[in-house]
Design a protein around this nucleic acid. Structure first.
Length: 822
RNA sequence: GCCGAAGUGGUGAAACUGGUAGACGCACCGGACUCAAAAUCCGGCGGGGGCAACCUCAUGAGGGUUCGAUUCCCUCCUUCGGCACCA
């Protein structure tokens, strides 16, 4: 029989078609099997898939295919995060309606994904831009409204006075409008919020459940993002007698307050008539939040002329407006203790405010005139009335006790986390289902009227105004309560809402309820979630929040949506992220055309471990292609040697064949370990390459013996299934080429024999004081005593020991002997 | 600035729990095959020194802990991700 070439185009088309026809990847509820839900973050349909997607989905596919071979009932869906800004930008630029643009992109990208051979159940596909999906966004919104989890308040947005439009942060970079370069200002608007802060403690407590299965860095980032701190709310008073509460985590420094600072947005400031102060407030409001709070920007402030009274000391101090104080955090005002806070110190120096020491170092007392920076360490309270002499840690509690007893303050818990603003003054998103009536106020759209359908026939007129605002057929409605004329909300939802619950909708995208009870309770939660590290905080926190809300509504059985999380690194080329502007984008389709999907998949996994960034290299891809050809040629060349169902006996093997067999079983063991325990696919592939090198090293004569044929046949039976999750088309083709009737997609993961994973001989090293002096080959079952004996007998070692005193001898079994001498 | 990571040969990386630094691949060099080239197969490949056995230096920089540190601790440098309206 003639040897065949590795014709990947033909092979990949053939198997993709076969899998589809056989329905190999349809996911069905089967309560007799353990389920496994593999999910990759769904893409935004920008038009073409990029290498980052290929990497993400290849990792997911290897998990899905491997777990399936291990006997799990797999759930592996895919869909589209299909609302968002880019569709509107495209609409403005090309005058293409977002719906059309998005639908076409989805069709293209789906074809691209199919070409990569991913094992998705496409009958579960969701698209967040479809009314049958987003109606449930609206439904959840109504439930949240009922439970008081959705509410409206005034909040500011980036505003371009020239374009008369709201800008996203990325459209307002460096404080100028992306379209007209005008200075961006802030504008206050009434907006909808989700009360995620109510779930702050739940979100923190939930971390316990996923502590061992999520990357620690993600948990840390979320913890810091939520930023729970216990402190004291202290009721300062204005000179006029008005209450002026502030929040502090450092009540031990309260005797050191020399001034107060208030946020520019604080309502108290509305009464101020001083023009200079008014101008300053306007200036602050036009600064972006990043600018205001970043440490490298100068802290700025201005005296309001108001005075505040410290309830502990009775001192009267000045009240400043400061750009670095945020209305969203605490009470929107702070007490300034320049002696013991870095930022307050800098501010005090700039504006000539006094500094007071209230915590001192017992061993090296502070001197006011020598202080060049705030002292933020621990110490003993001084100048602090009855609390003087106390350790400051103790004083924190004592001062809080005192404040509570006297009614001038109370212990409170404060969060850095802010409520989630979901209103977007944009067209391409899910309409917020409320109606405004002059008589009845804000009226929720009744459930029976859902979905509020987003009109798709729209005119963008080349500007970034939401077309919804000029569509009376959308905005003019009757009030559901009184039947009078009313106006529909034209704001749409943040797209993070869409992606906060899609993982559960996959279970039953066809359902006319939010979820099909049986499907969702069987498949949820996600067992393995995979996506970029850039989502560590926002998306993953919002999704957890939604999952908890849905759990409280009785719609999901678990609180945590993602049992295990893998955060993958970016795909880099020539040292930076692939992007159009840098011109370093590699199109997956071109590479597939040249080398095939299996090579692309293999390279994506081989070039770097999943968590790390991956450097794209054209030469490296060729290496992966070369490896597949090498395996292909070896198997083709020796195809005639294959004997189906032959059983190998170890004692009939030559030393060379036995060694090869051990390498085979070691390969299965290590690849299994790398996939299951470590999710480190680059080393798994390296193992497979080593086995291939060992196959080439065996002599032809040896392979042609009866025993050789049996070992070769075992290699075929076990190695091809091992390759399957990585290069599924290649593996299926080989499998059928060796006369197998089954599909690898339905096959079991091969087993290894533990005794056959131990090499007969191992190399150990001898050290003197931790420096290697000799390496020797020994039998792998050597005892510690024998190792020690051999170390002493070694001439090189003896030379280094002689005339010296042995202090210690360390034996690490199977590794080394270290003799410490003096 | 704040929060979170990463830094190892010419290069992508490996070393899993503190125990042989550089597995596997790329590039490069040499050999075989060929009229020749490509492909393929075989071999070499961190730096410095030595004819050689071998010696010595080396995991961003500097210190520390340890018999032994890429791995743990401290300080610093550089790069990357996130910072609430990109997704």
């Amino acid at each position: 029989m003639a040897e065949r070439d590795y014709n990947f185009i033909e092979i990949e088309e053939k198997w993709q078609k076969t899998w589809e026809e056989k329905g190999s990847f349809l996911n069905k509820v089967d309560k007799n099997k353990p389920k496994y839900y593999v999910l990759e973050m769904f893409p935004y349909p920008s038009g073409r898939i990029h290498m980052g997607h290929v990497r993400n989905y290849t990792i997911g596919d290897i998990v899905a295919r491997h777990k399936k071979m291990k006997g799990f009932n797999i759930f592996h869906p895919m869909g589209w995060d299909s609302f968002g800004l880019p569709a509107e930008n495209a609409a403005i630029k090309n005058n293409t309606p977002p719906f059309k643009w998005t639908s076409e992109n989805i069709a293209n990208m789906k074809t691209q994904l199919k070409r990569l051979g991913f094992s998705y159940d496409w009958t579960r596909e969701v698209g967040t831009y479809k009314p049958e999906y987003y109606r449930w966004n609206q439904w959840i919104f109504l439930k949240m409204l009922e439970k008081g989890l959705a509410y409206k308040k005034v909040s500011s947005v980036n505003w371009c006075p020239e374009c008369q439009t709201v800008l996203a942060n990325e459209q307002a970079e460096n404080g100028v409008c992306w379209r007209c370069d005008s200075e961006v200002t802030q504008k206050e608007l009434e907006q909808w919020f989700f009360r995620i802060t109510k779930y702050a403690d739940d979100l923190l407590a939930g971390h316990d459940e996923i502590a061992d299965t999520w990357p620690e860095q993600v948990l840390t980032m979320q913890k810091n993002w939520i930023g729970r701190s216990t402190g004291l709310k202290v009721n300062f008073k204005l000179e006029t007698g008005e209450d002026f509460p502030i929040f502090t985590t450092r009540p031990d420094t309260i005797f050191g307050v020399t001034f107060m600072v208030i946020a520019p947005e604080h309502p108290l400031l509305e009464k101020i008539s001083d023009q200079k102060v008014k101008d300053f407030i306007l200036k602050c409001k036009s600064q972006s939040m990043v600018d205001r709070t970043s440490e490298d920007k100068e802290k700025e402030g201005i005296d309001t002329g108001l005075k505040v009274i410290n309830p502990f000391t009775g001192d009267k101090v000045s009240l400043y407006v400061g750009n670095f104080v945020l209305m969203e955090y605490g009470t929107g005002a702070i007490m300034a203790v320049p002696g013991h806070d870095v930022r307050d110190f800098a501010f005090a120096k700039k504006y000539g405010m006094p500094v007071k020491i209230v915590i001192d170092k017992p061993d090296a007392p502070l001197k006011l005139e020598d202080m060049s920076e705030a002292y933020t360490g621990e110490g003993v309270c001084v100048n602090s009335g009855e609390f003087s002499g106390m350790n400051n840690k103790e004083a924190i509690e004592k001062i809080a006790d005192y404040a509570e007893k006297k009614g001038i303050g109370e212990r409170t818990i404060n969060y850095r986390l802010r409520d989630w603003g979901i209103s977007r003054q944009r067209y391409w998103g899910c309409p917020i289902p409320v109606i405004y009536c002059d008589k009845c106020g804000t009226v929720p759209v009744p459930e029976k009227d859902l979905p509020v359908v987003l009109p798709t026939d729209v005119d963008f007129r080349g500007d970034s105004q939401s077309p919804l605002t000029r569509m009376p057929e959308f905005t003019k409605v009757k009030c559901p309560k009184c039947g009078g004329d009313a106006r529909r909300e034209t704001d749409t939802m943040d797209t993070f809402v869409d992606s906060s619950w899609y993982y559960a909708r996959y279970s039953s995208p066809w359902s006319d309820k939010i979820f099909d009870e049986e499907e969702v309770s069987y498949w949820m939660p996600v067992d393995q979630y995979i996506g970029g590290i850039e989502h560590a905080v926002m998306h993953l926190l919002y999704a957890r929040f939604f999952s908890m809300v849905l759990n409280d509504l009785g719609l999901l059985k678990t609180r945590e949506p993602f049992k295990k999380l893998l955060t993958q690194g970016m795909v880099i080329k020539d040292g930076s992220k692939m992007s159009k502007s840098k011109g370093n984008v590699v199109d997956p389709d071109e590479i597939i055309k040249k080398y095939g999907a299996d090579t692309v998949r293999l390279f994506m996994l081989f070039a770097s471990p999943p968590q790390k960034d991956l450097d794209w290299s054209d030469k490296g891809v060729e290496g992966s292609f070369r490896f597949l050809n090498r395996v292909w040629r070896f198997l083709q060349k020796n195809r005639e040697l294959y004997v189906a169902g032959s059983a190998v006996k170890n004692d009939e093997l030559s030393a060379e064949l036995k060694k090869l067999r051990i390498e085979l079983h070691r390969t299965i063991k290590f690849v299994s370990h790398d996939i299951e325990e470590r999710m480190q696919y680059n080393t798994a592939i390296a193992r497979m390459m080593e086995l291939t090198n060992a196959l080439y090293a065996i002599s032809e004569d040896e392979l042609k013996t009866e025993a050789g044929k049996k070992v070769f046949s075992e290699v075929v039976d076990k190695f091809i299934p091992v390759m399957n999750p990585f290069v599924p088309h290649f593996a299926e083709e080989m499998w059928s080429d060796f006369g197998k009737k089954s599909f690898l997609a339905e096959e079991k993961w091969p087993e290894f024999i533990e005794e056959l994973t131990v090499r007969d001989e191992i190399e150990i090293v001898f050290q003197i004081n931790g420096k290697i002096k000799a390496k020797v080959n020994v039998s792998s079952d050597i005892s510690e005593e024998e190792m020690k004996k051999l170390a002493h007998a070694d001439p090189k070692m003896a030379e280094n020991i002689s005339g010296k005193q042995i202090v210690k001898e360390i034996v690490v079994p199977g590794k080394l002997v270290n003799i410490v001498v003096k």
